[in-house]
Amino acid sequence: MGLPCGTYNYSYAKDMAILRTKTHWALFIALLILVFTAPLYCDNYLLGVANLMGITLIAAVGLNILLGYCGQLSIGHAGFIAVGAYTAAVLTGTFELPFLVGLICAGLMAGLVGLFFGIPSLKVKGFYLGIATIAAQFIIIWFINHLSITGGFTGIAVPYASIGGFVFDTEASQFYLIMTIAVLCVFFAKNLARTRIGRAFVAIRDNDLAAEVMGINLFYYKLLAFFIGCFLAGIAGSLLAHWIGFMNAEQFSISESILYIGMVIIGGMGSALGPILGVIFIRLLQQGMMFIAPMLESAFPALPAGFASGIAPMLFGVVIVLFLVLEPRGLSHRWMLFKASYRLWPFSY
């Protein structure tokens, strides 16, 4: 059996390819098959968790473009998701437009709102931008609660998604819809990072003054990052609305926004793999806590009454702090290290 001692490229196209060897292709296709046949062997509960993960992943990919690639802090991501969710809800529910129109409009609307709140990023950065986006979060949620078209505090019912007469009314069918869009979004983000736009984003993240000196139009690219990030948030919001079937502004609290930042950081900022790992990590942790907390509560009656609802945020806070202190480059960096050591095994280098 002849082992390859390296990967040789005979053309530039091959050198640039994301999947470079036949093994890569085989693994990739196996993974896709595994994901898309999941409804055959998963029950509805697992599919529901997977759907939530898929929706979260789309939003997290958006935040990763904004925060991980372009370095613009947004603590209002849940607010932008809410914009998308309510746009889709109003368009398909109240005006009975088709699902796809609602989906695109949700993305555009969230993108435009993101553009508006991204304008301060031209003058300020870091903490100031964080505050601006926190303010955006509160202003958006306040408007949703007080406009009559969004149903106010009572919320708004959303019909199932449907394309050309086919109604996505089961977890399994929605799983296919959500996963398809999620895979497309990850593919888009992975490729975006390799284009001129992605490289401009990275240059802005590393030093925006130097980037400007090198001829990158800050005005254009910063706002473009906000638009793309919030566009994906809007898409996620639209899918979320159709998946849950009922929208209420309480689902889009500031804690949710912080959680999204946590996901991007835990996964690893500025890598395509990062959001996937971060989303799986956080959502699994959430599901695990929902599962374990009541059990612990019944096993140890001495625990305070707020244990079940309070332990999850505490744990997330600790996890975020621990990751920042111990592994600021996130899980994807760990994965890289593992891959490198696996490739060289049994030699150390």
């Binding site: 997330f316 600790v318 975020i320 702090v321 920042l324």
Partner: peptide, 13 residues
């Protein structure tokens, strides 16, 4: 900035 956000999360919890 994010470490203080994590802290905020923890304190609320």
């Amino acid at each position: 900035i994010t470490v203080t956000l994590g802290l905020e999360f923890f304190l609320e919890g």
